[in-house]
């Protein structure tokens, strides 16, 4: 039976789906502390596809990569509880401010460190940006084919993968040679829950930085059980070119941010007069609500 080396890309994101009234501060900026940090939903769909492949082809390995601040180690723990073999946290101040191009560069360098790999699986897009750009850009940087919007990885063979894709108005099935980058659509099956045994096994798993604040008992536990250590990779450990990282590696810049969450609803009453309707329409155009 063939074994595969599978890599999953995942992101920790603020939960933007249920934004309450306290999500925006009075000055119009985002109140991140009011939004829980979660495993990006479509990355969970991607993780499930990877774990199904591992179930189907015993002996295969699944490695999870996530880029983010130290607290993103939580994403790796959640993945360990569900069955991945190991994970690395890509974290470095030099990565801060990366747009999708710089992010895909970091991820592609980390993937190269894991060579040889057969398949890279990621969610279609992350809910904090909804760009769906990182998957295809990682594929381009690795110079491998991409198959986006996967609903099901039908079969995996030594040198090819067969995938059902969900398009806006239909479905298609394609076969791509390996290695390839696959992005998974939300219509794919949801991720399995945490496994109780794996939860027990990995609940004390910690990243190198997290360990610094912990007691000697913890350090001893980690010396006895090396699998508990979550590796952290910075720019130098993935041999990244610093010019291509963070703000300097990001062609896009944010010029302006406006809050579109409105204050407690204060209904304005208008008449059907020409003046009222003219000024309302002008206001909507100015706010980019229409036009």
């Amino acid at each position: 039976m063939t074994k595969f080396n599978i890599i999953v890309l995942a992101k920790q994101v603020p939960d933007t789906r249920n934004v309450g009234k306290d999500a925006m501060k009075a000055d119009g900026t985002v109140n991140r502390s009011a939004l829980p940090a979660i495993f990006n939903p479509e990355d969970l769909n991607a993780l499930e596809q990877a774990l199904r492949l591992k179930d189907k082809y015993p002996g295969s390995s699944v490695t999870l990569l996530t880029m983010g601040p130290g607290r993103a180690a939580e994403v790796i723990r959640e993945a360990l509880y569900r069955g991945v073999d190991k994970g690395s946290l890509l974290t470095d101040r030099k990565f801060a401010g990366s747009d999708t191009l710089a992010t895909s560069y970091v991820l592609s360098m980390a993937i190269k460190k894991l060579e040889p790999y057969d398949i890279v699986i990621a969610g279609r897009q992350a809910i904090d940006g909804d760009t769906a750009q990182v998957g295809p850009q990682v594929a381009e940087k690795l110079n491998v084919p991409q198959v986006t919007y996967a609903e099901e990885i039908i079969s995996l063979e030594q040198e090819s993968v067969k995938i059902k894709r969900r398009l806006e108005r239909g479905v298609e099935t394609v076969v791509s040679p390996l290695p390839a980058v696959i992005t998974v659509h939300s219509s794919a099956p949801p991720c399995r829950p945490r496994n109780a045994k794996l939860l027990m096994k990995y609940k004390h798993s910690r990243s190198v930085s997290e360990l610094q604040d912990l007691s000697e008992d913890y350090l001893q536990l980690h010396r006895d059980r090396p699998y508990l250590k979550i590796e952290e990779w910075g720019a130098s450990s993935i041999s990244a070119d610093e010019e291509k990282l963070g703000l300097s590696g990001s062609p896009t810049k944010v010029k302006k941010i406006e809050s579109v969450v409105f204050k407690a609803k204060e209904s304005k009453q208008l008449s059907s007069s020409d003046e009222d309707i003219d000024s309302l329409v002008k206001e909507l155009i100015d706010k980019h609500t229409i036009g």
């Binding site: 603020p14 933007t16 789906r17 934004v19 999500a23 925006m24 985002v30 809910i127 904090d128 940006g129 909804d130 062609p251 896009t252 810049k253 944010v254 010029k255 302006k256 941010i257 406006e258 809050s259 579109v260 969450v261 980019h288």
Partner: peptide, 21 residues
């Protein structure tokens, strides 16, 4: 080119530019 888009689940409106490239 000012590229204006909603982000953060539609809770903010961002203006993005590409000054150099």
């Amino acid at each position: 080119l000012y590229q204006i888009r909603p982000a953060f689940g539609g809770n903010i409106l961002a203006t993005i530019i590409n000054p150099e490239t």
